[in-house]
Simulated scan of single mutants.
Amino acid sequence: MDWIPCPCWGTNGHDENAGEVADRDPVLLVSGIGGSILHSKKKDSKSQIRVWVRIFLANLAFKQSVWSLYNPKTGYTEPLDENIEIVIPGDDHGLYAIDILDPSWFVKLFHLTEVYHFHDMIEMLVGCGYKKGTTLFGYGYDFRQSNRIDLLILGLKKKLETAYKCSGGRKITIISHSMGGLMVSCFMCLHPEAFSKYVSKWITIATPFQGAPGCINDSLLTGVQFVEGLESFFFVSRWTMHQLLVECPSIYEMMGNPNFKWKKQPEIRVWRKKISENDDDTSAELESFGLIESIDLFNSALKNNEV
């Protein structure tokens, strides 16, 4: 295989173009689910506190500010406290919100890399000569919301416009991760003219275009644990996260596509106690649910969900 030099390097391996903005198309990094810092603020106040991600008092802050209820009339999932709003910090040209998700001294001191999201890629691109605010930008967003909602789609459009102008009218390379790729796909369908005008290339990493049935099904039924071991005691618990996920439209948008020709058809297997007239009978049977049948299972499991 032929050796291909890094596009920001000269053939001698040195960064010949560092600082020369005109030789680089701008890059926009788009995070996936859980990949953006979220701040909480009272609507009548300017002060903000970080509620995702944080290590200390993580569970308490999460319940108070990030727990939400889906409003079918508006299409948004809304905070339980109507006086609270969730905002995404725009510092560092959008890169701060997707870099180290808990930028506290504690995390940096002990180098807890679980919350280092786009950090390594940002450092690599800066090392290759990309300049924040001129050729390097980030887009964090409220990942609880639908990927098709105006709040996210119009925010992405505005970020692309900014990157296009700040780079001198050069088209943008988008690098998205996971669910961020679904949002870019929605943007491309809803605003094809803007996508053609502003975007040159789109690179997406681990995007579940046909859904992620294993991960999503498990998350909807049992929650999700981001951190294992001793560190989990300082983080958001599985069931606290579960209460959030069942009210997030973005989660349901990643359920498995029933029309896709899966190599192995996804299914959920659930052990259920047999119904019998004999109360002493404790036997159980294993039931299987396909992608369509699992919808009834979710309806049954989640119908009485309440905070």
Rank of each mutant, 00 (worst) to 15 (best):
Q265N: 15
I37T: 13
H119R: 06
P258Y: 15
V115H: 06
F209T: 09
T134I: 04
H191N: 13
E161N: 08
W52D: 13
I49W: 11
L101M: 06
K46V: 04
F110Q: 00
G127Q: 01
L220G: 11
I88C: 00
S276W: 01
K263W: 07
A163N: 04
V115K: 04
W262E: 12
V66P: 01
T77S: 12
G211R: 03
T240P: 10
M183R: 05
S47F: 13
S45D: 13
F195E: 01
P192F: 10
Y139I: 00
S47G: 07
M121C: 09
R148S: 12
E161F: 03
S68L: 08
K131L: 12
I153V: 14
R144S: 06
Y139W: 10
T204V: 11
F209W: 13
A22F: 10
W271E: 04
I175C: 13
V126E: 10
V184P: 05
Y141P: 02
F289E: 03
F137T: 05
M1I: 05
E285K: 11
H191K: 07
F143L: 02
I275R: 13
L182D: 08
S200D: 14
I295G: 01
V27L: 04
A22S: 14
W262C: 07
G35N: 02
E231P: 00
F137V: 05
G155P: 04
G34S: 06
K165G: 03
L95S: 00
M183N: 08
P266T: 10
F209K: 05
S167A: 13
G90V: 08
E20V: 09
G32N: 10
N259G: 10
Q145F: 00
L230V: 07
L57P: 02
S167I: 06
V53I: 15
N12A: 01
G214R: 09
G133T: 07
W67E: 08
I275D: 01
N257W: 13
F118I: 11
L190H: 11
S104H: 10
K263S: 14
V199R: 05
V227Q: 00
I295A: 12
G75R: 00
M241V: 15
S47H: 12
G180D: 04
M1Q: 11
F298A: 02
S178T: 05
C6D: 15
E16G: 10
L136M: 02
L297Y: 06
W67N: 08
T207Q: 11
P79F: 11
Q145R: 04
S104Q: 07
G90N: 03
D218L: 10
K261E: 15
G180E: 09
D150T: 08
V224C: 05
H117T: 02
K63A: 04
S185P: 00
A18S: 11
M183P: 01
K201W: 04
T135E: 04
